[in-house]
Design a protein around this nucleic acid. Structure first.
Lengths: 190, 190
DNA sequence: ACGCTAGTTGACCGATCGGTCAGAGTCTGC
DNA sequence: GCAGACTCTGACCGATCGGTCAACTAGCGT
């Protein structure tokens, strides 16, 4: 069962950097040290490989969301902050899958796992924004999640001037700043 | 000269939605109503077409940046806010080019126009963040620009629940929120 | 009428794409 | 020893890729 994992890992890395359409099965196989045929032995198709590669990430978000929604502690600010923390953890843990979903999700819609991820994100937005549905809140949520995902992957291109921060530094900063973005001024000032 | 513009427009749209590698010259030609050979008559190669398509956007950012850096008014908060406003305008005007650059820039590095865009973004970050180079400031800048770009393109996938906001609404919200994100609490609290 | 240039196109090229298939190697239980 | 399942692979398929090229058309100055 090691081969399938190696292939998933290699595939995810390529999908995140070169894009799904820009990645060939041959290249994935070469990267993982197998023949192209072996890839199609473990996964029925290129799309099935993508699904298998990002499914754990989607499942993770669904779990965190389910825990939040089932929690009996209401939707206090503390609980919402806890949700943000766990989401940030998932963003860091599955950064490649998140990047693939956010940057190529629209061209990949139709794949079951992508549709699952879409409803998960919508429910996440609803949980974070509560019933407040102003344009500002939508924009804040979009910037927070899109920005975080961008920062974790593409952002490295021009953020490494001196020394790029540790994952732990990044995690702390993201937790603080995203919570900051999502809760503008608890009592509106504009 | 109309044909070249039509092809650039069609190409940019495809590059933004399906990705550069995932877009075929044949599809671009079909979309614009020409033959594949015509595309390669107007542009030396697929890469040259990409460069021509996103060059105006890069030039726009370079101009705005040059105006800001050459301005004799120092770097007051008001001037920095004006810079943010103009950058937001450019993000809206060239949203497809911005999307292509931010989501595929790393796999497209090497193309002259992409490298130009990279240095422009770095200088923009320096101009906005001033000499403050803490992890937080870098994260805030990354989230702001990445989030805005994400919101303008991919974000539409799951933001259109009811009615997605007007461009003008979006512009106002972005100006306010991005300025907000980049200037956390004028005097640091951490 | 002429030649010249710009624009457009279909035919064609080698390479590579995702995917199929018939084996070959390896290990197990009998 | 042997049967069977599991894993892996090279050869091969039709389709499509980016790119080349010669030919055709339309306009324009002379």
């Amino acid at each position: 069962m090691r081969a399938a994992d190696e292939l998933k890992h290699a595939a995810l890395e390529q999908f995140a950097t070169v894009g799904f359409a820009g990645t060939s099965l041959q290249h994935i196989a070469d990267e993982a040290g197998y023949a192209k045929s072996s890839v199609l032995y473990h996964f029925a198709s290129k799309e099935a490989l993508l699904e298998a590669a990002i499914e754990p990430a989607v499942a993770g978000f669904e779990d965190v969301l389910a825990v939040f929604l089932a929690g009996r502690g209401g939707r206090s600010d503390a609980r919402r902050r806890e949700l943000v923390d766990r989401v940030v953890d998932l963003l860091l843990e599955h950064r490649e899958a998140v990047h693939v979903f956010l940057t190529q999700g629209q061209s990949l819609s139709g794949l079951p796992v992508i549709d699952r991820a879409n409803v998960a994100v919508r429910r996440l937005a609803a949980a974070v924004c509560e019933e407040r549905e102003s344009v500002d809140d939508q924009v804040r949520f979009g910037i927070a999640i899109g920005g975080a995902a961008f920062l974790l992957t593409a952002g490295r291109t021009f953020a490494d001037e001196s020394t790029l921060p540790t994952d732990d530094e990044l995690r702390d900063a993201l937790r603080r700043i995203i919570a900051d973005i999502l809760t503008p001024a608890r009592t509106p000032s504009n």
